[in-house]
Design a binder for these strands. Structure first.
Lengths: 190, 190
DNA sequence: CTGAATTTTCAGTAATTACTGAAAATTGAT
DNA sequence: ATCAATTTTCAGTAATTACTGAAAATTCAG
């Protein structure tokens, strides 16, 4: 089954973008195709549609599974393995964030923590540690904050994001409430 | 001038991580070294410290400049070009985000917008467009939200991030205020 | 302007990564 | 248990990307 021009466009864009990330062209295209497909696809179908060798598809799927971006689905009466992408795009985004965190952020944080425990040899080392601490703190703050946001229920999150620039005003509001009296519940008066 | 073990550790971690991003090992190491250095460095120093060829350093610096991650600094009485990383790590983070946006997000959004304008050829195309729209909307929402956050002044931002999970409660508060009366100013009573 | 210092370019090569086909391993229906 | 269907592995090769040294270009002090 051949790709429609619409899908071909999407798939090849992901192929190109794939190489900008750590992920390669094949993996990017596989994912794109699975993502837009209206039904689970098996390895042979993917190989045929994308004109990759069967073994290349096998390796690509393994990679996508390790990222938890596709999941296996069995179709009754068919022995082959079918693959699909999760329905919920926000869920996909969160999975991607989690995996990048595990693979990139955590190792970096632990390297930084290690480096910060070492005894600086000289003034240069002292300065290097200062910079590393700044980096460490920034990464830690943004990731732990992202963790919190991730846990919000989707409706709250959407509402929250839509607020955009109003955040600043909201914080001013909160501060005023705090001034007003201990645990703010929005009911106090001045 | 040789690298201390502390810096060597940091530099080689960035080399390895670099290859996971689109950026290569050389560029990662160059950046790491410039980032922790307590003074601007010139190309010859970088080449010597990292044991890269002079031309490799030249290409790497060009790449880093295109990402706006290092900037040129001239030292009086010295013709050579020195490079340094911005002081403020939050600024660095924002620059990185802006560049990734320009290079990755914007092209993807415009591909998606193009695809969404096309006439679906069949039911498969219809479904593909539905998925593309979901992706488009998610990307647009998160990036435009990030834009807003980026514009917050640093203090508000830190305060905001520290709140973490309390966001949900804050939004509840906001809703209650809204219920109370049109433009909330935190002063109304029930 | 001249020319030494410095940076950039680029063709050639090295190193790495991606991909294939064939063979091995696994799976599950009978 | 058998064996055909299916998936995975892996050695070899192709393609891509990274790196170098030499040469060209640029810069700027005199």
């Amino acid at each position: 089954m051949a790709l429609t021009p619409l899908t071909r466009q999407f798939v090849s864009h992901f192929g190109e973008m794939g190489s900008r990330w750590g992920i390669n062209r094949t993996v990017g295209q596989l994912y794109a195709l699975i993502f837009v497909s209206d039904r689970p696809l098996n390895a042979d179908e993917l190989a045929e549609m994308l004109e990759f060798s069967r073994s290349n598809v096998s390796m690509g799927l393994k990679e996508l599974q390790s990222w938890r971006l596709v999941r296996l689905k069995h179709i009754p009466g068919d022995r082959r393995e079918y693959f699909e992408a999760p329905e919920d795009v926000w869920q996909i985004f969160k999975t991607l964030a989690e995996e990048r965190r595990r693979r990139e952020i955590e190792p970096t944080l632990s390297m930084l923590r290690g480096a910060l425990l070492e005894e600086p040899a000289d003034a240069t080392d002292k300065h290097a540690q200062k910079r590393m601490r700044e980096m460490h703190d920034l990464i830690e703050m943004t990731t732990s904050w992202f963790d919190d946001v991730q846990r919000l229920d989707p409706d709250t999150l959407v509402q929250f994001m839509r607020m955009g620039a109003k955040v600043q005003k909201l914080l001013e509001l909160k501060d005023r409430m705090k001034l007003v009296g201990g645990k703010s519940n929005g009911q106090q008066r001045t």
